[in-house]
Simulated scan of single mutants.
Amino acid sequence: MNQTEEKSLYERLGAIDGITRLVDDIVENHMSNPAVNKRFLPLKDNPEHFAEVRQHLINFLAAGSGGPEEYTGKDMLSSHRGMNISQGEYMHVIDDIMKALNKNNIDDQTQKDVLAVAYSLKGDIAGV
């Protein structure tokens, strides 16, 4: 068994500190990505809501990767219903996530694991 298999996804992402850095980088990528930023830039107009969304993202990724944090937000289907997110937008978001993983020197296997999770959520996010 190699080191990647022995550690949880949460640990491989750097636990809560690493996940927080990842989320901040992902959000920054979304804000600067012209293909999806219209969905994210309005968050800057409401700092309290932005802070809440950011914390939900951190907790979602942390809890979903095996960490002790608790996610108390809506499920993916409920939180994305009616947003009419296109397949193209979804792929841009995935690209932004991958850029953040690369920036944070996350190893290839862990990136593949995150990608698998992201694709498993696609049906609850895109086109609903």
Rank of each mutant, 00 (worst) to 15 (best):
N2S: 14
Q3T: 13
Q3H: 13
T4D: 04
K7Q: 13
L9G: 12
Y10N: 05
R12V: 07
L13C: 08
L13W: 01
G14A: 02
G14M: 03
A15W: 05
A15C: 12
I16Y: 09
I16L: 15
D17E: 14
I19N: 07
I19W: 05
I19H: 00
T20S: 09
T20G: 10
R21V: 09
R21P: 00
R21C: 11
L22N: 00
D25M: 05
V27D: 03
V27T: 14
E28W: 00
E28I: 00
N29E: 00
M31Q: 11
M31A: 01
S32C: 01
A35G: 05
V36D: 12
N37L: 02
R39W: 04
F40E: 06
L41M: 06
L41P: 00
P42S: 06
P42T: 01
L43D: 02
N46K: 09
N46W: 04
P47E: 06
P47R: 03
P47D: 02
H49N: 15
F50W: 05
A51C: 03
A51Q: 13
V53D: 02
Q55M: 08
H56C: 13
H56K: 15
H56M: 08
L57M: 06
L57S: 12
I58E: 04
N59T: 04
G64V: 11
S65Y: 10
S65N: 06
G66V: 08
G66W: 02
G67S: 07
P68F: 07
P68Q: 06
E69C: 00
E69G: 02
E69K: 01
E70V: 14
Y71G: 14
Y71R: 13
T72I: 10
G73C: 02
K74S: 15
L77M: 14
S78C: 06
H80I: 10
R81V: 15
I85F: 10
I85R: 05
I85L: 15
Q87A: 11
E89F: 05
E89D: 02
E89A: 07
Y90W: 03
Y90E: 11
M91D: 07
M91E: 15
H92G: 01
V93C: 15
I94D: 01
D96C: 10
D96T: 07
I97F: 05
M98H: 05
K99C: 07
K99Q: 03
A100M: 13
L101R: 00
K103W: 08
N104W: 04
N104Y: 13
N104K: 08
N105H: 12
I106W: 03
D108G: 13
T110Q: 04
T110M: 08
Q111Y: 09
D113R: 12
D113Y: 10
D113I: 11
V114L: 05
L115G: 09
A116L: 11
A116G: 09
A118N: 11
A118I: 05
Y119I: 15
L121W: 09
K122C: 12
I125K: 12
A126T: 11
G127Q: 12
V128A: 13
